[in-house]
Computed example of a mutant assay.
Amino acid sequence: MTNTTEASRHFAAKLRFETDPSDVRAAQEAGERFALIDTRGEAAWRQGRAIGAIHLPTAEIAERVARVVEPGTPVVVYCWGPGCNGSTKAALAFSLQGYEVREMIGGFEYWAREGLPVEDDHGDVTRAADPLTAPVDGVSCAC
């Protein structure tokens, strides 16, 4: 196997099992069927979450998943941010329960920093896009 073949397989696998906040938001807006799961604890959930997310902490996935997410529904999981492997642990837990799952890289941090819709226990939270993570005058980075 050549290095380019190995690299192609590696990056294709990453795209099969990972996604990013702007792609998740585009999928929501397109009406794609999936469950967006916030895997953080209760205090983090109350502080703010991606619009449309369902709260299911990682430690509760095995016990509660069938009641929270209809079997056969694709799942996208997120946790705090790139410095946290909570979403990786959650993705593993969902896959062990038989769900098709993708991990949202960047987590809630980059969802919020990109200016995507956030809500908390009081309603919508408006945040400006961070110019270090998203174009301030456009919809996406066009990558």
Results as ranks from 00 to 15, higher is better:
N3A: 14
T4N: 09
T4K: 12
T5R: 11
T5S: 10
E6P: 00
A7H: 10
R9Q: 14
A13V: 03
A13R: 12
K14L: 15
L15T: 11
L15R: 13
E18T: 13
D20M: 05
A26Y: 02
A27S: 08
Q28E: 14
E32C: 01
R33N: 15
R33F: 08
A35Q: 07
L36T: 03
L36N: 00
I37N: 01
D38F: 06
T39C: 15
A44R: 07
W45G: 01
R46S: 09
G48T: 07
R49G: 03
A50L: 06
G52H: 09
A53D: 09
A53W: 00
I54A: 07
I54P: 09
L56Q: 02
I61A: 01
A62H: 11
E63K: 13
P71G: 10
P71D: 03
T73Y: 07
T73P: 10
T73Q: 10
P74K: 14
V77C: 14
V77T: 14
C79K: 01
C84Q: 04
N85I: 04
G86F: 00
G86Y: 00
G86E: 01
S87H: 08
K89A: 15
A90I: 10
A93D: 12
A93S: 11
S95W: 09
G98F: 02
Y99P: 04
E100W: 06
R102W: 01
M104C: 12
I105W: 00
E109D: 11
E109C: 00
Y110T: 09
W111C: 05
W111A: 07
R113F: 09
E119F: 05
H122E: 13
D124N: 12
D124H: 13
V125T: 06
T126R: 12
T126N: 14
R127D: 02
R127N: 08
A128K: 11
A128G: 14
A129T: 00
D130V: 05
A134W: 08
A142Y: 02
C143L: 15
